[in-house]
Design a protein around this nucleic acid. Structure first.
Lengths: 258, 258
DNA sequence: AACGAAGTTTCACATATTAAAACCGATTGA
DNA sequence: TCAATCGGTTTTAATATGTGAAACTTCGTT
């Protein structure tokens, strides 16, 4: 009798993920080592993936990397994401007002995933966070989302994922965080002061859909000094208004709920 | 003896692609029908895909759709794409000057894939083409790319893909197109007047990398009347300049080649 | 309450996948 | 120039693994 999952498929996904993380083309043997698979198995999986366009063989003829088909799937999904379509213009406006970077994130498996980004004028976009994951306990968006969940669920996530310390400011105590979350639940504004990355302050607010469920969050972030200068309160208010606009456009009824 | 490719993986990719095309969540049986697979097989593949986050089961508990992990892979790749990073700011500038939509496309398997888009001010972005495929013979970007290939390869592509007619203006004769391509090769500007979609005019120009290979193309498009009004020549020149800037930033040496 | 439609689980069988080993081709160093 | 090394690719025999039929479960409908 068989396993619950399809082994071959899992292995193939391992190959894809290893390629995605690598940022540079990898060889068959290298991939095999990383996921502990025989090179000939890896080879056949790669052949299939290539054949279908999900992986490409660099012309230097020895290395494999993700192929264009991956974008097709991913971007199509991205484009169709309702919350993204609704949020994009609002974030764009928000950035015009504050001239700081704004992000849209979605929760997934107790973590957050950066989905979209609106940035000020010509700021060269560094390595964008879009597509990346981050923990909830040390990000403004994460805390905004946690603040909408029942305490029990919050505890579960924090216990399961741990509360890794990234800076001296990272909150590593569950109860301390729970207190803060209650505050956030009331104000709908979360603040993260260098808890994730030294020198960066980030504010977040949750996004609700028609059912009142928090399905994402937006944030504004920038260098600590500049953010302080512009005024945390003002930024918070502007951002909160943007969040409310997005939620409203998703059918959230403030009148009924507020 | 065994096939060249991994059957299970191919079937799994079929499942993913069917979900990607569907635009709406599908049930197990429905998917099975579309790709002619037994529903229990489909079910097990879906379980695995869900387990890994590439597919999600809607809470209405009966339908499956692409999951957030797909975005993670796709967007990461997207963000890392060198040509995209280089083209984005240039396209953004181009849009500011012309106030029409600009696209970046890559060639793949004799077709083009829309990769990125820069759009004028607040034009609500309709259903974006990003992530979609289109034929080469009836798009400005496609013709721009074809113009850089040897005639033999062009013939091969056109024969293999056919020259489907989308409007009365679509060029459906190989030789007619070949003549036009020679022209485009010289000017580096391709024009497509309602050959793909009635009412839309599109101009394109190829992008070259350090090796002199055309690796993509950019375009500007808009309603026929407005484009005419703004002047095809002017738009073409501006766009061509942008293309040259992108190519130069990718290391293409105009001095050596031009 | 019975029926039908769809999802899920079980299970015996045979096929498709695997890993070892052989093969090939390029690069390196003597 | 030749031998050695290191990948990538191909072959093959053994069997673990994925498959589809059928049974089972829900759920919604008549």
């Amino acid at each position: 009798m068989s396993e619950k999952y399809v082994q071959t498929l899992e292995r193939s996904l391992d190959v894809l993920e290893v390629l995605a993380q690598a940022e540079e083309p990898l060889g068959v043997t290298e991939i095999g080592n990383r996921i502990s698979l025989h090179k000939s198995t890896v080879h056949r999986i790669l052949q299939t993936l290539c054949h279908r366009g999900y992986v490409e063989k660099k012309k230097d003829h020895e290395r494999y990397q993700l192929g264009i088909k991956i974008i097709e799937l991913g971007i199509r999904f991205f484009n169709d994401l309702e919350i993204r379509k609704v949020a994009a213009p609002v974030l764009s406006d928000l950035v015009k007002v504050l001239d700081e970077v704004a992000h849209l994130v979605l929760p997934d498996e107790g973590e957050i995933v950066y989905i979209d980004r609106a940035e000020s004028s010509q700021v060269v976009s560094m390595h964008s966070k879009v597509g990346r994951r981050a923990p909830m306990h040390c990000t403004a968006v994460g805390k905004a989302l946690l603040s909408t969940m029942p305490e029990e669920e919050v505890r579960h996530i924090l216990e399961q994922k741990g509360m890794t310390s990234y800076t001296p400011n990272t909150i590593t105590d569950i109860d301390t965080l729970l207190v803060e979350l209650r505050q956030i639940k009331a104000t709908k504004i979360s603040i993260e002061k260098e808890e994730n990355e030294i020198g960066i302050i980030c504010l977040g607010t949750p996004i609700f859909d028609y059912s009142g469920q928090a399905i994402g969050a937006i944030s504004v972030s920038g260098p600590a000094s500049r953010i302080q200068e512009k005024g945390i309160t003002r930024i918070g208010e502007e951002m909160k208004k943007s969040g409310e606009r997005i939620s409203a456009n998703l059918g959230f009824d403030f009148y009924k709920r507020s």
